[in-house]
Each structure stands twice: as structure tokens, then as C-alpha cells.
Design a protein around this nucleic acid. Structure first.
Length: 644
RNA sequence: GCCGCCUUAGCUCAGCCGGUAGAGCGACGCAUUCGUAAUGCGUAGGUCAGGUGUUCGAGUCACCUAGGCGGCACCA
């Protein structure tokens, strides 16, 4: 007998081997009908899986949040069944549930077309209507290999071959179709429902390795209900509307062109935004005790050889040769340059921690397929800094940095989702003892700053573990911006030393850190976060002074000048157009404040302010408006200083 | 880099089975001087990404190249 503890706390005994469906039926036949999965001690099981042990027991209907992942996983199976029915000879590989949906990778010589997706979707709906029971079977591993080979499923056979010999494997069967799968699954294809949609076609390497053949991946999204599907599709549209490439063009912030792939032409308005961001970060660094430096764009390969980057990243560096036979590289990173400054002259323990910052322009030859608007470029500017410190200062410095980064992100209106601790990667420099120590130090530092990081196994840099900030934007998407990496390797390789209290030479530790990451990317994130409607302090154009009739032209110029004198970014619109037209145009251009002036305002030395997103107006004396707006437009740190 | 798709006026996009290029917005000109999300009329603007081929004839079909987009791989 086994004891099942129900969510209400009651306990009942059943024969070992009873299934979830039988348990449900013992309570109410309708429950057996509605249930699709069993949750036993937190693990999901098939409804018809015989229960061998007791525990905390729950029956899940398909509306349960926990069932969604299974719905998606089943949708991928239904898709695979549909594909193999429609396109005989196509091999299946793997098809998991992912965030918001699922995919399945197929091997087929002929490419799928967008038209095929509609056909597959149609067939999937038919399979759901067929209400095919989904049955779990246990197979002998070797028999499974032989079987899948015999039906031409080479990839499946290969997957099973990677399972240790002697183990049983599970196969799920629905109708005439079957797939090797760990499960669990819903009891029938009908339970998948029809709130799904195939969304895109893509290539994907077998087993995620670029040396393997490329498979065809079909992505889909699946939800518990039509309404959720609709809501999801709406979210996609919203994200598209915010695309920084579209907004960048519409707001005349920047452009890119084929002669400079992955490079940004910043237009004046975009550069204004850039300067606001850079100036703000610079003030925060000054305040936090950093010094700012600037190092050469092009350096001899010797530095990159010493740092180890030449060996690992040479194909991704922009290298040039001189007439005299030198081999130079555009800097892909700032670290070696900063170490040269550190090494210039003699450093003492009294100089530590030395926080050396640079808005460093770097170039990396990124693969063409990786480029993506401002988010992934070949020429970018890091808000980089290296903190040279003693080992006993690591925790304190890391904790201080965590606070600084948090404060800066929040000033930009970005919420923190979590901080990840990226641990040792498979290919790495340094001994296990070193990694044990470094990972422990990073974790301790994070905790000291009151942060419990989420462990990202194997995501560290080759020389160091790191903490990465994962931020959430206004529509819930996450972005990784900001990092701190603990490095014992580079100081050694580039021979950085300081004189300790004991008069001996010692190696400093380097903390590589960035808060925005690349300014290009960070600005891209800001554009998408605000959909171009920036808060006043960030807005490239803060105020447009718009006239109603040409009688107010002279006054409008004077008013604009008065606002500019207070540091505001002001444009004037004296065009011979109706005020309606001007209001519409500047509203669409996301200008935060429109100052309307007509004959009346000109006579009374006032302005009528209209703020983006509200249709009211506020009539103020010009001097008062200048005061109010100037104070509202203060960057957050400046405002805090003024308030203190 | 790999797989797939896309590329028509400054922008957004039509253009059927191959028959010789179209709209809206914008720009420019003229009229209009107007009180908070589009004033009217007019004008100009295109080697249909580039190349090769098929064809009596190519924006439309085929192939190649480039760029873009969506993924994959990569991301110090």
C-alpha cells in the first residue's frame, strides 16, 4: 500500500501500482476526466503511470500552471507527428518545450517553406481532434537502437546510443506515431488543445555543434487557452513596435550601412542621448572613487599574446600590418592597456584599490550572422574599469560595485531580475583550487551586498568567474547588462606588481567590471525599454517651442533661448502650420514637453506647456517654466545632490 | 560563419498567369496666420539591391554576389 497526501492535507491509502487516473476516479469520475497529469512530491508524472511510492500528491488539470510545459512539449510531439505524416522521409531529432512554446528539429534534405507551416498547423489540429491516447512504453536500450535504425531514424538511434547500456528507455506512442522521450505527457493529443501557432523556421546544428549537420527547426508557441495565445501574440507585436532599429530611424538617432557592417553612425540626437548617458556614468564613477584614463586604439600584438587573447581570439580581431612589418591590432578590450598604466612607475599597497575607468572604444570582428542593430556590433564602447586590489579587498570592492551598479541601473529605470554567478567553463585557465577560491569569493561578496545570485553553471570567462546583471525592461523582457569578473590570471601574465607593507613585491588582483556593458547596446536597451518616450533627463529633445501664428515668432525664439540658458535641450517650430499639426508631429516624435506660444503668451511672457501623454496644458510665466523644467530635467544623481 | 526568408521612390508598402511602375506619408512650390494629435492645391522623385542567364519581352522566372531579417553557432 502507498499513502497519498492530498493538497488539503488529507491522507488516503492505495494499492501500490494504482494510477493517477484510478486515484482520481476513486474521488469523483469527473475528476478522472479532467485530470491530465499527476504531481507527486513535486515531480510530474503521466496520469496513467502506476504509482510505486506515496507522497504529496496532486492531480493537475490542463489549466494548472504546471501543466503548461507539458502542453508545449506535447505540442512539439504533435507537430513532429504532423510533419512525418505530411513529409515522409523526414527524420525526427529532439523537440523540447521552451519559454513561451516549443520547437522540434527535423532532418530533411528539402527545406520547409512558410507555406508548409500552415499545412503542418492544420494537420496538428486534426491530430488533436483524433484524440489519440498517448501511451508510455518501456523498451530495452539495444532493441530501441536497432528499431530506430531500422525505421531510418539515425538521429534517434544516436541519442539512445548515448544512454548507458543496460538501461531501459521510454517511448511514447500516440496513434501510429512514436518518439523516444522521457515524458511525462498528457493522456491524449486532445489535451494539447488548439491554442498554438507555428511561428518561425530556422536552421539549428545537430546537438548545438557547428561541426554537425544543420537541421531544420520549427518553432511554435502554445498556451492553455486561446485568450493566452492572443495575449502572447499581442506581446510580440508590442516588442516589435519597440524595436530600437525602427525607433532609431524614426527618431533620427543613428543609422548603419553596409560599408560599415556592425558599426554605428550616430546622428546628433542619438549622440545627445549617448552624451547624457556617458556624462551621468562618469559623474557616478567620479563620486565612487574611480580615476578615468584613455589608452591607445591600436597596439602591438605582443600585448594580446601576453594576455592570451591572441591565441584564443585572433580570428575575431581587426589586425593590421605596417610598412615596417609590425603586426598591430585594434584593441578588442581595454585590460592590457590599463595594466600598462598600472605598471608605469611603482605602485604601493597604499595605491590600492586603484579603480581605473575608461569609456573604451573596442573593435571585435563578430561573425556577420551575430550582428544585430545596436545590440551586437563590431565597434563598441565599454563603460569599462579595472579595479586593482589586494586579495583581502575583493569582497569589499565587489560589494561596493554591486551597490553602484544597482543604483545606476535603477536610475535608468531598469529593474533587476537577478544576478547570475557564472562559474568555471569547460575550457579554462587556472587550477581547480583557484576556481574554488574565486567562486567562493564572488559568492561571499554578493551575499555581503545582500544579493543571492542564481548559479549559471559553466558560463564564466575562461580566466575568471563573474557576476552578471540580468535586468528586466518595462514589458518584462530580460537583458544582461553589467558584469564583474574576478581575475588572477592577467596580472600574472602581464606582470603587474605592487610593493606591499612588507616591502616585497606582490601581485594585485584585477576586477574587470562594466555597468552598462557596451554603451551602444545599453542605449538600444534604453530605447526599447522606453519605446523612445524617454524620461525628460534622457530625452534628446526635451522641449519644442511651437508657435500658433507668426506673430509669436520673435517671442518663441526668446523663450527657447531662456530655456536653453537653463541647460535644456530646446528646438523651435516656427513653421507655417496649424498648432494641431505641430502638436501631433512632436507628440509622435515623443518630445516630452511642447511649449506652445501664441499672441497671448507673447504679450504676457508666458508659455503653455503640454506634456507627452497628457492633453492638458499648464500656463506658466516663462521664468517659472524654465525653473520647473530645468529642475525636472536634472539627471537623478544631480537631483539627489540638490535635494540633499 | 551556417540554414531559411527578404531587398520596388527619403520612409511604409501595392504591383495577378512575364507585356514596359503605383499609393500614402515625407520633400519642394503656392495659397492659408489658424489656440493643443493631420489646411488645401500643385510639383518633383525609381537602372525595381548588383550581376549573369532564359525569353520577342523580366520588378515578376533561374543562377551568382552583397546587404538586411529570423534562428543556430559564437560573444574575451
Amino acid at each position: 500500500m502507498i499513502d497519498l497526501i492530498f493538497p488539503d492535507g488529507s491522507k488516503r491509502s492505495y494499492e501500490a501500482g494504482a494510477t493517477g487516473r484510478e486515484v482520481a476516479a476513486s474521488i469523483a469520475p469527473s475528476l478522472a476526466k479532467r485530470s491530465v497529469l499527476v504531481k507527486l512530491d513535486g515531480a510530474l508524472l503521466d496520469l496513467d503511470r502506476p504509482l510505486q511510492a506515496g507522497g504529496k500528491f496532486e492531480l493537475l488539470t490542463r489549466d494548472a500552471p504546471e501543466a503548461l510545459e507539458t502542453i508545449r512539449h506535447d505540442a512539439s510531439h504533435v507537430m513532429a507527428e504532423a510533419v512525418q505524416e505530411l513529409f515522409p522521409g523526414t527524420q525526427v531529432t529532439i523537440g523540447p518545450a521552451i519559454e513561451d512554446g516549443f520547437y522540434y528539429d527535423f532532418a530533411r534534405d528539402e527545406p520547409f517553406s512558410l507555406d508548409d507551416l500552415a499545412k503542418i498547423e492544420q494537420r496538428m489540429k486534426e491530430i488533436v481532434d483524433r484524440d489519440e491516447p498517448i501511451k508510455r512504453e518501456e523498451w530495452d536500450r539495444d532493441e530501441a537502437i536497432a528499431h530506430f535504425k531500422s525505421i531510418g531514424e539515425a538521429y534517434k538511434a544516436e541519442i539512445i546510443e548515448s544512454i548507458p547500456a543496460g538501461e531501459t528507455v521510454t517511448v511514447y506512442r500516440q496513434g501510429n506515431w512514436k518518439d523516444l522521450c522521457r515524458g511525462p505527457h498528457l493522456p491524449s493529443t486532445k489535451a494539447v488543445g488548439k491554442a498554438f501557432k507555428l511561428t518561425k523556421l530556422a536552421g539549428a546544428y545537430w546537438r548545438g555543434d557547428h561541426r554537425n549537420p544543420m537541421l531544420q527547426r520549427i518553432y511554435g508557441t502554445a498556451w492553455g487557452s486561446e485568450a493566452e495565445l492572443e495575449a502572447y501574440l499581442l506581446r510580440l507585436e508590442e516588442a516589435e513596435r519597440r524595436d530600437h532599429r525602427k525607433i532609431g530611424r524614426a527618431m533620427d538617432l543613428f543609422h548603419m550601412q553596409e560599408e560599415g557592417k556592425g558599426m554605428v553612425f550616430w546622428h546628433d540626437k542619438g549622440l545627445t542621448l549617448w552624451r547624457v548617458v556617458e556624462d551621468y556614468v562618469r559623474r557616478r564613477l567620479d563620486e565612487a572613487g574611480y580615476v578615468e584614463v584613455r589608452t591607445p586604439q591600436v597596439l602591438d600584438r605582443v600585448f594580446w599574446e601576453q594576455s592570451g587573447h591572441w591565441e584564443k581570439y585572433r580570428p575575431n580581431m581587426f589586425v593590421c600590418e605596417t610598412e615596417e612589418g609590425e603586426e598591430l591590432s585594434l584593441k578588442p578590450m581595454n585590460c592590457p592597456g590599463h595594466v600598462q598604466i598600472f605598471k608605469f612607475g611603482q605602485k604601493s599597497y597604499r595605491d590600492l584599490p586603484l579603480r581605473m575607468a575608461e569609456f573604451g572604444a573596442c573593435h571585435r570582428y563578430e561573425p556577420s550572422g551575430a550582428l544585430h542593430g545596436l545590440m551586437r556590433v563590431r565597434a563598441f564602447t565599454q563603460d569599462d574599469a579595472h579595479i586593482f586590489c589586494r586579495e583581502d579587498q575583493i569582497e569589499e570592492e565587489t560589494a561596493r560595485f554591486i551597490e553602484l551598479a544597482n543604483s545606476i541601473h535603477s536610475d535608468f529605470g531598469l529593474e533587476r531580475d537577478h544576478i547570475a554567478l557564472a562559474t568555471r567553463p569547460a575550457v579554462r585557465a587556472g587550477s581547480d583550487e583557484f576556481w574554488d577560491k574565486a567562486e567562493t569569493q564572488m559568492l561571499a561578496a554578493a551575499r555581503k551586498a545582500g544579493v543571492e545570485p542564481v548559479i549559471a553553471e559553466g558560463d564564466g570567462a575562461f580566466y575568471a568567474p563573474k557576476l552578471d546583471w540580468v535586468l528586466k525592461d518595462s514589458i518584462g523582457r530580460t537583458w544582461t547588462c553589467g558584469t564583474i569578473q574576478l581575475d588572477y590570471v592577467l596580472p600574472e601574465r602581464l606582470d603587474a606588481e605592487y610593493v606591499g607593507e612588507d616591502g616585497q613585491k606582490h601581485r594585485p588582483v584585477m576586477l574587470h567590471r562594466a555597468i552598462c556593458g557596451s554603451l551602444e547596446r545599453f542605449i538600444g536597451v534604453l530605447i526599447e525599454n522606453y519605446a523612445g518616450a524617454f524620461p525628460l533627463w534622457l530625452s534628446p529633445v526635451q522641449v519644442v517651442v511651437a508657435t500658433i501664428t507668426s506673430d509669436a515668432d520673435e517671442y518663441a525664439l526668446k523663450a527657447a533661448q531662456a530655456l536653453r540658458a537653463r541647460g535644456l535641450r530646446v528646438e523651435t517650430d516656427l513653421r507655417n502650420e496649424k498648432i494641431n499639426y505641430k502638436v501631433r508631429e512632436h507628440s509622435l516624435a515623443k518630445v516630452p514637453v511642447i511649449a506652445v506660444v501664441g499672441r497671448r503668451e507673447a504679450e504676457e511672457v508666458k508659455v503653455a506647456l503640454r506634456r507627452l501623454g497628457s492633453d492638458g496644458q499648464q500656463i506658466l510665466e516663462l521664468a517659472e517654466a524654465a525653473n520647473t523644467l530645468a529642475s525636472e530635467a536634472s539627471p537623478p544623481d544631480v537631483a539627489r545632490r540638490a535635494g540633499a
